[in-house]
Design a protein around this nucleic acid. Sequence first.
DNA 1: GCCGTTTTCGGCCCGACTGTTTTCAGTCG
Length: 574
Amino acid sequence: MLNKKVADIFRNIAHILEIKGDNPFKIRAYLKAADSLENVTEDLEDVEREGRLAQIEGIGKDLAAKISEFIGFDRIKYYDELKKEVPGGLLDLLSIPGVGPKTAKLLYDKLKIADINTLEKYAREGKLRNLEGLKEKTEENILRGIELVKKGRERMDLGTAFITADKFISLLQDKPYVKKISFAGSLRRMKDTVRDIDILISSAHPEKVIDDFTRVEEVKSILNKGDTKSAVLTGDGVQVDLRVVPDNSFGAALLYFSGSKAHNIKLRQLAQKKGLKINEYGVFRARSVEDRAKAIAGKTENEIYKLLGMPFIEPELREDNGELEAALKNKLPVLINSDDIKGDLHMHSLYSDGHYSIKDMANAALKKGYDYVALTDHSIALKVANGLDLAALKRKRLEIEKLNKGLKIRILFGTEVELDNDGNTDYSDKVLSEFDIVVGAIHSGFRQPKEKITKRLIKACRNRHIDIIAHPTGRLWGVRDAYEVDFGAFFKAAADTGTFLEINSFPTRLDLNDVNARHAKESGVKIAISTDSHHIAQLDFIRFGVAVARRAWMTKHDVANTLSLKELMRVKKK
DNA sequence: GCCGTTTTCGGCCCGACTGTTTTCAGTCG
């Protein structure tokens, strides 16, 4: 995707400038612009055509020109020139924890090291310790860092991250010196993937808390350990960071530690204009002598936002995507909550590839407080998932009719119907017309060109029987990337035809993602948040789908399955 | 390189930890 490509180039330019020792603020401008571009919901080509590039946060005249240049010529001359000065492999060195621009430059200038393998060789041979300002300890750290990089400390999906985070929190929360505890960072902001897990604790005895932390049984190695913070690595290679602060600083620290960085920077700038200073210990009068006892605020996040003249901002919104401006005008959306969800519209039973009966799935949904649930087993063409033939459909239908007489939840007769390479369904119109809910889905032909996939999805929108399109971009974390779609055209078709688009809550899918979902909302598309459960325990994944919707600024009115069954049946197609 | 209710120049968030020093630079979040 173009936005991502340009963002990556800007990030590379920033890294090259760092190594060159260029103006740090210029470097920050490139990094800020890169972050900003990744949050732009529209395609940059459209924004450029309408001359709105410079309206993007962090993009000025100069960077707008560079984006235009890339759109027109598929290259940026300035970037090409820079690359000649700094060999490509040198940028890879920056991915090693502990190696920054200064060290990378030193290694290249003195020893002509420009890739990770060469660096490893020199470090093993003890050839780094003769460099100025670098001794054995740093050599060891570099080797340890390289080991981490080689292990591929990738980002992990939210589900995996929460398993580790919950474990640490449950083991630490009852320790005698722990007063308050919370996870923070991108996990608290519910980003779809996270790199490490951040935990914040308030305590009067930080050293004892940090001792307990480093002794948690999952800890395999200690990366660092200071008076108030520490970082460890688990056996699974997950990094967990801990910060300990006094109890009256908990709110300020939670704010700081939750980020995002861009949100914090802007918040601190706002504070500066009011003659205040925010750090992780609280809010202070900027001119007074540093005295942490004299914080004006800091116990809770809420009082800090209030002091700056705005309401509380939910962590999911803290990406510097306009949330601070909206908060100052008191125009933040009332975000959807898990409690707003009235039913789940995508799940499987024993009829296809699920692991529980329809009755079990329905009872589990009832326990979650739902009013309705759609059992959308696979259709006949998806043989690997035991897709239902007409005889099986009949049996399933009769079973549902029978169950509906005795249960306090309404079971909807549904299907997840295959969309073939041209966007046609494998069930006939007549068969489709008998379902309460039809979910259309792509499970093959992911590599079609953008135009073809877009046409296929639009055709599905125009099918009068298809109520919802499941996992609209096909991405599966760690397996395959999303296919290319012309989102502008696709979302317009969905909005025009009243087709709901799914936010699939499976943590390895989360599809639509936050940025696309916000684009869909802005295009007038109605969303269905579903779990795609194959197991009763997976119904709880709904919180991840809701999180995506919250990150997309959605209220309950943007989401179809917050409606009562009666309302849902009224607003859906047909 | 961006940005503006201290506005077109002169600012740009703030602090902890480590390793190397003898007061600090580099890195990280």
